[in-house]
């Protein structure tokens, strides 16, 4: 589904990604771990199409298409979704309004009919309930005045509504208490399916207690240094990253 080859990228003139390779198949959940500043967030932002990153070499193919040549909304239409580490507040724009605009834009792209307001609202309400989101959410502006936990839940709600093919989760577990973490994990697990892939960036093993990854990668110095199954995450939790770095240097 997603094939990243030899990806090099700069941010403000600094080399961040230095030859990153990653293959993600439909149905897989990948966890990307690594020390601070290793390029984890850069990677998902580049995949979602954010400005400010300069790709100097390499390629990204998504469902056979050149992902890097697509603008962010085209990527969204094609099924890419980024759950933000720091979801953005948009005062004056209603949550449901944005969600409906997004949903219908994606449906339109797929050649499907737009859902009318009533049906849409019913669908969103059911998913809100699943994500244990307060009904007052419907009348509030996008992320405005939300607590950290509410923002993360909103990201997952959006993901449940938009049903992406490739979900990129950027430190979705950061800043969550254990109850909120469980709810967020429940939402993510709900979307696991053989047609869908997920790439989760995380610092902590604890998220992986709730969402079992098929593959775990260590990203450091702009490259994937080591890949393994879920046991690699447990080992990292125990031993830190130094041994991986040492192994790679050897």
């Amino acid at each position: 589904m997603l094939s990243i080859k030899n990806l090099h990228a700069k941010v403000e003139g600094r080399d961040i990604l230095k030859g990153l390779d990653l293959e993600v198949q439909a149905g897989e959940v990948h966890a990307i771990m690594g020390p601070n500043g290793s390029g984890k967030s850069t990677l998902v932002h580049i995949l979602a199409g954010r400005d400010g990153y300069e790709v100097t070499a390499g390629s990204v193919s998504y469902l056979g298409k050149d992902l890097l040549s697509m603008v962010p909304e085209e990527r969204a239409h094609a099924g890419v979704f980024l759950a933000f580490q720091y979801p953005v507040e948009i005062p004056g724009v209603n949550n449901v309004y944005l969600l409906k605009a997004a949903y219908n834009a994606i449906r339109k792209h797929r050649g499907e009919e737009q859902l009318d307001a009533m049906d849409f609202l019913a669908m969103v309400k059911a998913k809100m309930q699943f994500m244990e989101i307060d009904p007052s959410f419907l009348n509030r502006a996008v992320n405005e005045g939300f607590s950290g936990g509410e923002k993360k839940r909103n990201e997952i709600l959006q993901m449940l509504v938009l049903e992406p093919k490739l979900a990129l989760l950027d430190e979705t577990d950061s800043g969550l208490d254990i109850d909120a973490l469980k709810v967020v994990a429940k939402g993510i697990n709900r979307l696991r399916s053989p047609e869908r892939a997920m790439v989760m960036v995380t610092h902590y093993q604890r998220l992986l207690d709730y969402i079992e990854p098929d593959l775990v990668h260590v990203l450091a110095g702009g490259r994937i240094l080591k890949s393994g199954d879920k046991n690699l995450a447990l080992e990292l939790e125990r031993r830190g990253y130094d041994w991986v770095l040492a192994e790679a240097a050897a």
Partner: peptide, 21 residues
């Protein structure tokens, strides 16, 4: 970027924000 990453075009996003305002 947040709106666009959800599939909403830049112009629609600006209109949405301005109208809300």
């Amino acid at each position: 970027f947040y709106c666009r990453s959800r599939g909403v075009s830049t112009e629609d996003a600006v209109n949405m924000i301005v109208s809300g305002f």
